[in-house]
């Protein structure tokens, strides 16, 4: 359990670091896939099987492919040069490490302890589906509406102006 956490955490952090630091965009996206897969493993390690598999399906399957497509459609002639050492780079690094330090100190100093971890709940897909259809049916429908409108909106935005028509 514990060694699995360390391996998956290493995988996730390495993937995230790669996604943010590689120069070529393709390498960034592949590294992002590694990071998402590590996160899915962490969800499985936390006994959230359904969330882990959804993460695998949606992020590794759909979002990563979407990013690859966007990358291919916006192929730059020049690979944007990375300027490690510019003011922006230092600014981003400084703000991010500050945020991390504050969060880490807040976590370490927190009085909140983990509850007894003896009982492992194992929510079945059946139970999740049942509660999605009863308690959470309104958010589910709102999500369906959001996804539909996002789909149509993305197509309309990316389609561009029509030939000879108004934009």
């Amino acid at each position: 359990m514990q060694s699995a956490f360390y391996i998956l955490a290493l995988l996730t952090i390495a993937g995230a670091l790669g996604a943010m630091n590689f120069k070529r965009l393709v390498h960034c996206v592949l590294s992002l896939v590694v990071c998402f897969a590590g996160l899915a493993g962490l969800y499985l390690n936390l006994n959230a099987q359904f969330a882990g598999l959804v993460q695998l399906l949606v992020y590794v399957g759909a979002v990563a492919i979407l990013v690859v497509f966007a990358m291919l459609l916006t192929r730059n002639a020049e690979d944007a040069p990375q300027n490690a050492g510019s003011t922006d780079w230092y600014l981003g690094l400084g703000v991010a490490s500050m945020v991390f330090l504050i969060l880490a100190f807040a976590v370490q100093g927190s009085e909140l302890g983990a509850a007894e971890t003896g009982k492992l709940s194992d929510p079945s897909v059946k139970a999740i589906g049942k509660s999605l259809m009863t308690t959470y049916v309104l958010p589910l429908e709102a999500m369906a509406l959001l996804l539909t409108s996002a789909l149509i909106g993305a197509v309309v935005i990316a389609k561009g102006p029509e030939e000879g028509g108004k934009p």
Binding site: A16, L17, A19, M20, L91, G92, V95, S97, V99
Partner: peptide, 12 residues
């Protein structure tokens, strides 16, 4: 993870 994402979003 959040800090890494933030650093990337701010500096890339």
């Amino acid at each position: 993870l959040f800090a890494i994402g933030l650093a990337g979003a701010l500096s890339r």
